[in-house]
């Protein structure tokens, strides 16, 4: 597998979820999912760590390390939105981002 981000994130089908600290969610505008938004993961020091475009259903998924993270969402005709999130091994941190 390369380094590139799969739109919406890697499927969990072949992933041992118990060993991963997952952050996932959905980007919404006026109650509708936003595909093609860019979701960026920044670490506790604000350092960029990963980015992916959302799927048609507005979805994204990161495999983080345990700790505090910021999810920043960029989309056409919208201001960037930052959301704080805490990740831990064996858990899925789920968020809905409204732009």
């Amino acid at each position: 597998m390369g380094c590139g981000a799969i739109v919406g994130g890697v499927s969990l089908d072949d992933v041992d979820v118990d060993k991963e600290a997952i952050i996932q969610g959905q980007v919404m505008r006026d109650g509708q999912p936003v595909g093609g938004a860019y979701v960026r993961l920044h670490d506790k020091d604000g350092e960029f760590t990963a980015e992916m475009p959302t799927s048609d259903a507005g979805e994204f998924r990161f495999f983080a390390a345990p700790g505090r993270w910021t999810v920043r969402t960029l989309a056409p005709k919208a201001e960037p939105v930052d959301r704080a999130v805490v990740a831990s091994i064996g858990n899925i941190a789920e968020l809905t981002v409204s732009i």
Binding site: C3, A5, I6, V10, K19, L41, E47, F48, T49, A64
Partner: peptide, 19 residues
């Protein structure tokens, strides 16, 4: 790479599984 990959806390970018 990102600081966490450099330090060895992550093995891949955070949009990929870490194993």
């Amino acid at each position: 790479r990102s600081p966490d990959e450099y330090a060895g806390r992550l093995l891949a970018p955070a949009h990929l599984p870490q194993e």
